[in-house]
């Protein structure tokens, strides 16, 4: 009993001292704020990549139509076209219902200007992973939701970005196409910085 009283008194003193030490400088609050700001800055770079035409053109909604957007098509920010010749990926997202993506998109980029790009697999992203015209906050929330990110942890998302052959194509898209920004290694690092800082999502945009 006596020992318990001594320990309680000691802990009370220690906690009081700690709170007194923190209060005047507000160090933790500043540090936490800086950490979240850094995490959001890292996420913003990830969003810059995910919303880039090399990624977003094939992360399309349930209309299953690949988009053509970006300077490679002579279009300015916000302009876009549907994929030429009325192409649709169909519900299969690989064109199995009409013209298979692989009818034109082979396992490597065709080297002639305006010829189709290629990668070992070529398909639309699953419909629950839509990024086309989605805000930073919307994509952030989707990436964190295993029901909408292919059942992945955030570390597995980073691994997917670092190793998937079709994702890697975004940085080597062949002649005449603007690559996605940064490098896949940098994006993996951005994702990791964001994840360890608690993976905060930005506020919704108006």
């Amino acid at each position: 009993m006596k020992l318990h009283t001594i320990i309680t008194a000691f802990l009370t003193l220690a906690l009081t001292a700690a709170s007194l030490a923190k209060a005047p400088s507000d160090v933790d609050a500043t540090s936490s704020s800086a950490s979240e700001a850094e995490a959001l800055a890292a996420w913003q770079k990830v969003y810059e990549v995910f919303s880039h035409p090399r990624c977003a053109n094939c992360h399309v909604p349930e209309d299953n139509i690949p988009r053509w957007s970006g300077p490679s098509y002579g279009l300015t920010q916000g302009e876009w076209l549907n994929h030429g010749i009325n192409i649709t990926g169909g519900e299969s997202r690989i064109g199995a219902e009409s013209i298979p993506c692989m009818a034109c998109h082979q396992s490597t980029n065709a080297e002639l200007p305006h010829a189709p790009p290629g990668a070992p697999t070529w398909r639309l992203a699953p419909v629950e992973m839509v990024w086309w015209k989605k805000s930073s906050q919307e994509i952030c929330q989707q990436i964190k939701d295993p029901k909408r990110n292919g059942g992945r942890s955030l570390q597995e998302v980073a691994d997917h970005i670092g190793h998937d052959a079709l994702v890697q194509w975004g940085w080597a898209p062949g002649p005449g196409r603007e690559p996605a920004p940064y490098s896949s290694e940098e994006v993996v690092n951005f994702l990791e910085s964001w994840r360890v800082a608690g993976a905060p999502c930005p506020a919704p945009t108006e």
Binding site: I85, I87, I99
Partner: peptide, 11 residues
């Protein structure tokens, strides 16, 4: 519609 879809790429 299925014919149109499958033949779109043949001009």
């Amino acid at each position: 519609a299925e014919i149109d879809g499958a033949m779109q790429g043949n001009i």
